[in-house]
């Protein structure tokens, strides 16, 4: 039956709506093939019988199926595009290889373009007031506080902050530092956040 494959495709995509899955190249090729066949049949019928109106209904049905396939495919692609857009915000401009494999070539091209656009937009932000851009992806939600209290767990040595201050991280000293500066150190286990 017409349009069966495209529904399968959509259902597949619907199953895990939060994550992106492999670009279904095979199925899409089949669907497009089906559309080509439908189009060809319609062309033949339309050309052959300009007077015979009995075939018009058939042409109509085929045409609807064609349109439907097209619409569903576009929905599929659009949905994936939105997911890729969130990937940019979550992972940054460089995708991990396993995620990269899931995208088709043209999708990846779109991703790179989107990434460059976003980057140049972020660079341009705040130019008039003397900032050299703001990283919008840093805090997707407003942070509770700009600073956090941390306890140093090991003798780490000196840490230079973005504003040029140098901080000596020694065991059992407490610091109140900008959140972004500490996050990597907390992940490394040098600092411990105190709540």
């Amino acid at each position: 039956m017409f349009g069966e494959k495209v529904i399968e495709l959509l259902k597949e995509a619907e199953r895990n709506s939060d994550t992106i899955d492999l670009y279904n190249d095979e199925k899409i090729r089949q669907i497009i093939q089906e559309m080509h066949i439908l189009f060809k049949m319609n062309m033949d019928d339309a050309n052959a019988t300009t007077e015979n109106k009995s075939l018009w209904t058939t042409v109509q049905v085929r045409h609807s199926a064609l349109e439907r396939n097209k619409r569903c495919l576009l929905a599929y692609l659009y949905n994936r595009m939105n997911k890729i857009k969130t990937l940019r915000w979550e992972f940054g401009s460089v995708l991990p290889p396993d995620v990269r494999e899931l995208l088709s070539d043209s999708e990846y091209e779109w991703f790179s373009k989107y990434s460059t656009n976003l980057a140049s937009y972020m660079r341009s932000l705040g130019e008039d007031i003397g900032y050299s851009g703001i990283d919008l992806t840093e805090n997707l939600r407003p942070p509770k506080s700009l600073y956090i209290e941390v306890l140093c767990v090991t003798d780490y040595g000196k840490l230079e902050l973005e504003d040029g201050d140098v901080i000596m991280l020694k065991k059992n000293s407490r610091h109140y530092l900008p959140t972004e500066e500490c996050q990597t150190l907390i992940r490394q286990g040098v600092l411990k956040q105190i709540i």
């Binding site: 506080s145 700009l146 600073y147 209290e149 901080i167 000596m168 020694k170 059992n172 000293s173 407490r174 610091h175 109140y176 530092l177 900008p178």
Partner: peptide
């Protein structure tokens, strides 16, 4: 003092 500093985002280093 720590609580005060936290309210006003005064960054500090505390060493006993």
């Amino acid at each position: 003092l720590q609580d005060l500093f936290k309210c006003d985002n005064i960054s500090y280093t505390l060493v006993p």
